[in-house]
Structures are given as C-alpha cells and as structure tokens.
Design a protein around this nucleic acid. Structure first.
Lengths: 216, 216
DNA sequence: TATTAAGTTTACACTATGTAAAGTCAATTA
DNA sequence: TAATTGACTTTACATAGTGTAAACTTAATA
C-alpha cells in the first residue's frame, strides 16, 4: 500500500494583514533597474550574449531576484517589451485616430510610427529580430502588427470616404502598402541607406502620399 | 624541478598517399544531409530550439561528426547561408547587370530579388532575424547588403544616363529607395499583408516603377 | 515586539556547446 | 592481400546558462 503525503505549504497562511508600501517601492525600483540593464545589454551586445547573471549584476541584485520578479527570461523580455511600447508614445495613437480630416490623419499616422521607430530603433530591431527567429515569440509580435493593420485600414477607409474613390480590391491593396511603408523593417532599411532616421521619416511620408495620390 | 613533456602528435605523418574518392563522397553526402536537416529545423522550429544533437540525429550522424565537418554552430550556419545564397539563383545577378536597356535592367533587378525572397522566404527571414539580434552575425549579412546597394547604384546610374535627368542628391535618394523597396524586409511585410508573395512581387515592381517615373 | 514579505544564499538538476582522445572499419594502396 | 589511411564513432569531460527549491536574513509593518 502506497501512502502519498500531501505537499506542505511553503509559506504559511498570513494571520494578519501586511500591505507593504516602502518595501514595494524598493522592489519596484529594482525591477526598473533590471529592465533598464536588460535594455542596455540587449541594444549593445544583442540577445545571444544576454545572460541573467550579467543582468542581475548590472541591476545590483541576485539572479534569483530576477526570477522572483519576472519568472523566466522570456517573461522579462515580455515585460520590457510592454514597458517600451506603452511608454514610448504609442498611446498617442488614440488621439491621432480621433482626427477628422483625412489628410491630417494620414500624415499623423505616418508620423507616430516613424517617430517611434526612430526613437526606439535599436530596441525594436532586436525585438523584431527575435520574432523572426523564434515562432513562439513571433506570435506575440504579430498580434501587435495586426493592430497596426487595423489602424491602417481605418485610415484608408476615412480617406476613401472623403475622396470618394477606390473599389474594395484597391482599398485592401492600399492598406497593405500603407502598412508595409510604415513598418519598422522598411524604415530601418531606409534609414540605413539614407544615413539618418530623419531622412527616412521624410522619405516614408513622400512615398505614402504618392501612394494615396495615385489612381489605380 | 618541473619537467614538461612535449605534446605527442596525434596524427602521425602519412608515409604513403591516400586520396579518398568514395569515402569523400560519403562524407559529402553526410554534409549535405546535415545542412538539409539544419535548414528544415531552422525554418520550422526557429533558431532558439535548434540543437546540434537533434541535427546530428536527423542527419544520421553523431554530434561529433557535425563538429568535425563544420567546427562550430556558427560555422554550420555560415556554410548553410553560403549554400543557399549561391544555389538560390543569386548568381543570375551577373547576367542581369549586363543588360543594356535601362528599363529592362530595372525590371530584371527587381525580379531577381523578389524571386529569391519568394523562394527562400522563411530561410532568409531567420537569417536576417539572426543578424538583427546578434551584432557579430549582423556584420556578415551587412556585407551582402552593401553588395546590393552597389548593384542598385549601378542600376540608377544606368537609368540616369539614358533618361538624362537627376542631380547627384536626387540620385543617391533614389538608390536608397530602390534598395529599401527591394529589401527582403519590405517584401516580407508586404507579402504578409497582401496574402501572397506573388502579389507582393507585383506590388514592389509597381512602387519601383512609380519611383523612377516621378520627378523630384 | 512578533509578524510579514522581499531578497539573499546555497544547492541542485538539466540542457547545450565545445574539446579531447582512444577506438572502429571500410576504402585505398603498395 | 595485408598494412595503411582517414572519416566517423564512442566515451569522457569541462564549461556556461537556465530554471527550481528551500533555508536563511533583514527591514518594514501591525
């Protein structure tokens, strides 16, 4: 007869409330420090040489603390990804989409992305690279791209409504082109070849306007 | 007193010739099998889950054989990269660049790349992704991109010569745009959004032609 | 002042890369 | 045909990184 003992709870049930405060602040500061270190490391040395050991050292904590805060390496990257995306000006998208004038909407749409790609260029390059080599991670990034596609669709529809043109086929094509022209990958290659992100942003706007001025 | 013995040579100097033949064939077949397995693995499961152990199993050899043949994991990837690049139709570039008619040259230039990106899409995506996350590997890929930039420059110059237009500033801008429009990254995003590589290739050609028809 | 939770310390299991050296065996050559 | 050769295997080991577990430390809180 086999007797299986129940697992002993590691942390006893608390018998009186304890909502931290100062301790949570310290914890949060460490969290921020680790994320900052991860970002710097990722941008300078790339992903393959990014070790949690070095990260913990740079953040002034132990490797175990990193695991306590983020669970796994992938979890840490996700957290970093979210932090940059939310803090990087992507929330301006909402205001922009409220824009009523179709022409201004288009210009602002382009500007929001070229701005973001420009400021977070190295970081986004690494993240998208990671998505390209790893299917699992790629799925997470693809979800965000779909949101951009949806936004692009609304921009095109707004445009078509005021300019009263384009059949459905032409419209979907235009959405795809707008999406591709405002993609990070296109921006990055363009910036590389033109020598500066500023020039690339201008060029993207020119190409987008040309696309919308064309008659299919 | 410490006595250090000299290292015994592991493989004695051969005292009679021995140029294999059939054995080299077997070796070469195994090499091919390993590369094929690496490619399949890379395309389906990505880079992070690519282990030399699984590769060796798939190729029907030992892990040590992989090391004998390719040195390291990076060496194996380089070999695979070279194999695909040389065998994938990239050598057609030379013929294309001989083309005298500027219009046809431009069209063929675009076609060579969209063809290649189309056929080797997943593979190139992984390789470029790897270049994006790892600075060291990135340098190797960048060298190839510079070659494409040089080729694009020649195409633009040929065009400007026959069409007798464009100042130097306009020409360098056009080179950058041509390069960006024919880049893999742009093609990949476009194919994703349009639903097929075929459509993407057509769209790239349209955009390139529009760029060259424009007056700056 | 006892309790609580965050963080540290220490230890371990597991996986993967890379190196080293002895052993196997079929193809080659004298 | 028999010794030689070299590609491959087998076995072993070193190193590095990820991830888990549990006991211990310490400062903030009730």
């Amino acid at each position: 007869m086999v007797i299986i003992l129940t697992v002993v709870p590691r942390r006893p049930v608390p018998r009186r409330p304890y909502s931290s405060g100062k301790r949570l602040e310290i914890s949060s500061r460490k969290r921020t420090a680790i994320l900052a270190a991860a970002r710097a490391q990722l941008e300078s040395n790339g992903f393959l040489n990014l070790t949690l050991e070095a990260l913990a050292r740079a953040g002034g904590v132990t490797r175990q603390t990193v695991y306590n805060l983020f669970g796994t390496k992938a979890g840490l990257l996700e957290a970093l990804f979210d932090q940059v995306a939310s803090g990087g000006g992507m929330q301006r998208m909402r205001q922009v989409m409220q824009q009523s004038d179709a022409e201004t909407l288009l210009e602002d749409f382009v500007e929001v992305f070229t701005n973001f790609w420009s400021r977070e260029r190295l970081f986004v390059r690494r993240i998208h690279g990671l998505a390209a080599i790893d299917p699992e991670f790629g799925a997470a990034v693809e979800a965000r791209n779909r949101r951009r596609l949806a936004a692009a669709a609304r921009v095109v529809e707004r445009w078509s409504a005021t300019h009263g043109e384009q059949d459905v086929a032409g419209r979907t094509g235009r959405i795809a082109v707008l999406c591709a022209l405002t993609s990070f990958e296109f921006f990055d290659v363009l910036a590389e070849n033109l020598g500066s992100p500023r020039q690339a942003a201008l060029q993207v706007l020119i190409l987008v306007k040309r696309e919308f001025a064309s008659q299919p």
